[in-house]
Design a protein around this nucleic acid. Structure first.
Lengths: 340, 340
DNA sequence: ATGAAAGCGCTAACAT
DNA sequence: ATGTTAGCGCTTTCAT
């Protein structure tokens, strides 16, 4: 009598033998396709009994494609990205897709290696976030490599100059309009701006959105109240300090993301200014920590789940070319907390 | 004349044909093994010319194992995990390993699915972080499934009860001793404690470390100054509020992580207490944001790179059973900032 | 709805 | 150091 040691791996052939059907049928059933109810039941039971675990590599090798989506980000320490990733993870769950994050640490060689790994793994698509660590210029050859292989690619945080590659940017004018309206309601009209570097498209579009929204609101723009620089807490702090130390300082500062706003809040503390009494401060993105600053940060939340959905739609073979995007992306939402 | 359309994929056979050597030789060279210099040069050149990209699935299928390490975490929103992951990513880089994070959102079914994906992908090893979202009790059957398949597993943040599975916990008594010494140097000896739930081992060990370190320092422990509860910003705020609103309040609060400490800082602000003048506050972990709280948080940094190294050593087949760990993990470092 | 046969691209095992 | 052969476990294709 054979000892029941751990079989190295159980395959569809083992199940086929034990159930008396062909391997093909087993594969079909286990992939969720239809079959004779009797077979379905039996196959599933036997698979369970034997502890069957499908071999993803075999499937990927044979079919030439996997159900993984590669996601390129520069960092996890920037609190924006964990949120971004979590949305993608959530959305991927429902559609039998797997997210593989590639973290570049702002290093071009790491970026290339991550892309190579994605290609080696035959990912179904790639979502790449374009930020100050990897501005659009750096992407040239990487993007072309991916295009050549016909792997669906999406550039998040940038407009794309490649016709095969969609870009993805929020409606920043709308966002800014929302914030300005809120500030006006709270009696602030002397509004300053603290933003990230203009050579990064995502930051530039927020900056431009601010200008447009100020125009629309017929508010006076003072160039000296509009500062841009490094998109970090320290950067935000320093820029905000400059604004707050002026003789005629603004009564509100719109920061183009929450990181900068956290810096601006620190600046106000350093200047012993009451928030929001003497200075209102707002951010954008609603990163997890913005709820816990002191005082809690007023910010704008993008429709994250929706964005994740659109991104995965764009990049998954089954759902590509469903271009019902633009409409949805405007559903931004102001989160009014205590800093304004 | 055949049109040079995109060849679907270039394989080692194509390179072998073009260079006149056998596929095996091509594979060897491209995997970085040695060969005749002339061959090496030629093969690498031709591979480059043809745009060869190795098929990871084929390799994994044939060899039965991949160079990926699965990492289970409950969330990315908890700022501890991005740091944890980044260390692993960095360390993996140097050794030709790939990190695949599985995010469970604290949901048991997601956890199971992530593990199944890891198994399907034939990961070389799995690192699982045990926290309040998935306390040790929940891991039972998952761990046993992994053990049965002989996949190296490491439980981070817990002691393991399985002999095949190493656990991983920092030296918390040492950490606490360091913090208490620091507080004593700054003239604080009325020390309170705010910690996470005791049914979670990671939190319990910090709590116990605190008690031991207080004993060692011969400081008086008042049970009413030792609070544990939800390990969140809100939890930290509420517990700290309780301490700060007492008639005899402590002059320092040790929080068992930075998240709790951020809550405690908020509590001090709400009570209009000066930090560190009236109350000193410390955290543990040195999450990215602790540098940017107001005032900046004094905290303790674990030797992250070292921990990542040890973790990967533990789960990588080549380096298992090198048990030179314990020594290194004590190299914790106090980061004295402005909150103490 | 199911079966039979072939083959994806690599590495293992063995031979030279 | 290199070549030969076989086969990993699935999916594809074609036939029934």
């Amino acid at each position: 009598m054979p000892v029941a040691c751990h079989p190295m791996t159980v395959t569809i052939y083992d199940i086929a033998k034990k159930t008396g059907v062909s391997p093909k049928t087993v594969a079909r059933i286990l992939n969720g396709e239809s079959g004779r109810p009797k077979n379905v039941e039996k196959i599933k039971r036997v698979a369970d009994e034997l502890g069957y675990i499908r071999n993803k590599s075999a499937a990927t090798l044979r079919s030439g494609k996997s159900n993984s989506i590669g996601v390129l980000i520069s960092s996890l320490t920037n609190p924006f990205y964990p949120v971004f990733l979590e949305s993608l993870y959530s959305e991927a769950k429902g559609r039998n897709l797997h997210i593989i994050p590639g973290v570049t640490f702002g290093d071009m060689e790491n970026l290339r290696e991550s892309v190579d790994l994605f290609i080696e793994s035959r990912v179904a698509g790639i979502i790449a976030s374009v930020d100050e660590e990897h501005p659009l210029e750096e992407w040239e050859d990487v993007v072309e490599k991916i295009i050549k292989l016909k792997i669906p690619l999406l550039l998040a945080g940038a407009e794309s100059k490649w016709k095969e590659v969609p870009g993805f940017l929020g409606d920043e004018t709308r966002t800014m309009t929302l914030i300005i309206k809120h500030l006006l309601e709270r009696g602030r009209s002397n509004i300053g701006f603290v933003g990230g570097p203009l050579h990064v498209q995502g930051h530039k579009s927020r900056h431009d959105g601010f200008l447009k929204a100020m125009d629309k609101a017929k508010l006076k723009q003072r160039p000296s109240w509009i500062l841009t620089g490094e998109a970090s807490v320290i950067g935000g702090e320093q820029m905000a300090l400059k604004l707050l130390q002026r003789k005629n300082r603004p009564d509100a500062i719109i920061c183009s993301n929450d990181i900068l706003a956290i810096g601006a809040i620190r600046a106000a503390h350093l200047e012993n200014l009451d928030i929001p009494g003497q200075i209102a401060i707002t951010g954008i993105d609603d990163i997890p920590l913005s709820e816990f600053t002191y005082p809690e940060l007023t910010t704008v939340r993008q429709p994250r789940a929706m964005m994740a959905k659109v991104m995965l739609d764009t990049v998954s073979p089954e759902t590509r070319n469903k271009n019902d995007r633009r409409e949805m992306l405007s559903h931004v939402q102001l989160i009014a907390r205590k800093s304004s």
